[in-house]
Every structure is written in C-alpha cells, then in structure tokens.
C-alpha cells in the first residue's frame, strides 16, 4: 500500500518561492483506485514525482510497502509502476527489446522478464507488435506498449499521470480496462487527472487538490455530503471560486 505523509515542496521561480505541494497526506490501499484531482498547476504531478523520487520533498515522505522515500529510494522505486501521457518509446528498438530493457532497469531476471513480457502483451493485445520497431507504432499502439511497460516488474503500486490525455474514445476505453485490471489484481492505484467525469467512473476515493493543498478527500458519497453537490465538476467550480 501507499502512504503519503505531510509532503511539502516549494520551487524557486526568479525571486519568488512558489509552494507547489503543501502538507499533503493520503493513503491508498491494495485494490483501491485513488483519484488525485485538481486543475492544472494544482500540484498533482509534483506529488507523483516526489513519490517516484524524481523530486526531493522539502518535508514529509511517501511510503510504499513499508519503504520510505527518504530512507530507501531504490526500494520505493522498484515497487512503483509509472505511466504518463508524455511517455515515449525508443524508435529504433523493437517493442520486446524496449520492454525487456525496462524490466532490466527494474532488476527483473531475464527469464522472468521474458515470460512477463509475453503474458502482459497477450493481456493488452500487443503480442503481434512485440517484434515490430517501436518507431513504427501508431499512437494507440504506443499507449498500450507504455501501459505494459508500467507493469513489467509487477509493482504493488501504480501511478498514472493524466493517462487519457490526447487519446481517442478507443484509447480512453483501453485505459479504463487497464485500471480495472489493476484493481482486480490488487494494485494500489493513484490516478492524477483533471478529467473529472472520467475520474467519477474510475476511482473509489478522491482527493481534491488546489494550490498544492488537499481541499477535500473521501469517497463520492462522502464528498457529496461534504460539499452538497452531486458531481465532482460542481464541487470543483465551487472550490475554484472560494
């Protein structure tokens, strides 16, 4: 499971210090999909990057399966899967070579990596693409390869940053099915998005982020009770106006 405790991060922009994430805490249990929601610049991506160890927090920590980011970042990284809308592929490698490369980065043994590669490729319907050069794939195919890549080391926690950005209806549906699969196999999933309609369909619990602070958190019924609105969109508009 994932625990985020009092994460804090400020950036220096010219002479000003901008607080990107302010004392943020939440937990995600295995088999749960947590939606970290907020407008652009709310601090969602910075939060994910702090969990991933790409950004050093000013204070606080994230804990994955008992390992804390500031103590053992390598152990944390090896237990996290990460998929972002801006992820690319290596154009001159075959899909199989690319997936095995990432398996190697995560320390998966070569034999195990090969069988996981076959299994996940079958699951995501990219088996015929495995020996194609990645540079020749369509956007939708690349997206599915990226989703397989995120799971190649079988991490207990998955982080998805704006996973549906720039995708068509079929692509979005693939993401939905993917997240459903993650839930079924017991992964703790964090989805960062500003697509609130999609989040309502996907997530079990929500954290509403604004100006780096957690404004509200809970399940949809709990949020409805707290805010007096039925939909996340209305809750957000009120949040932005306040």
């Amino acid at each position: 499971m994932l625990i985020v405790e009092s994460l804090q991060k400020s950036f220096q922009l010219d002479d000003d210090e901008v607080c990107a994430v302010d004392n943020l805490s939440f937990e995600v249990q295995p088999g749960e999909v947590y939606g970290l929601l907020g407008p652009n610049g709310a601090g969602k991506t910075t939060t994910l990057r702090m969990i991933l160890g790409l950004v050093k927090p000013d204070a606080g920590y994230a804990q994955v399966s008992g390992f804390r980011t500031e103590v053992d970042p390598t152990a944390v990284k090896s237990r996290l899967g990460f998929v972002s809308a801006s992820d690319g592929v290596y154009p001159w490698l075959s899909v199989r070579e690319m997936l095995l490369y990432f398996a190697d980065l995560y320390g998966v043994l070569p034999n195990e990596a090969a069988s996981r590669c076959e299994h996940l490729a079958a699951l995501m319907g990219i088996k015929p693409l495995l020996d194609r050069r990645a540079g020749t794939l369509s956007t939708g195919q690349r997206q599915r390869v990226t989703l397989v890549r995120g799971l190649i080391h079988d991490p207990p926690v998955m982080l998805l940053d704006e996973p549906t950005r720039g995708l068509d209806v079929v692509g979005v549906q693939t993401i939905f099915e993917y997240i459903e699969h993650l839930r079924e196999v017991g992964k703790a999933v964090v989805v960062c998005t500003h697509r609130l309609d999609e989040a309502e369909r996907l997530c079990d619990r929500f954290g509403l982020l604004h100006h780096g602070r957690m404004q509200q958190t809970g399940t949809l019924p709990q949020l409805r009770q707290q805010s007096g609105h039925d939909h996340l969109v209305d809750m957000f508009i009120e949040l932005l106006r306040s």
């Binding site: 160890g53 390598t74 152990a75 090896s78 972002s84 290596y90 980065l105 320390g107």
Partner: peptide, 13 residues
C-alpha cells in the same frame, strides 16, 4: 525529447 527520460529516471537503476 522522445519522452523516455522520465520513465528511465523513475526506475531504481
């Protein structure tokens, strides 16, 4: 530019 750097840096290697 290809967008692969972030995924590599997120790995434990």
């Amino acid at each position: 530019e290809r967008g692969t750097m972030e995924a590599v840096m997120a790995s434990p290697v």
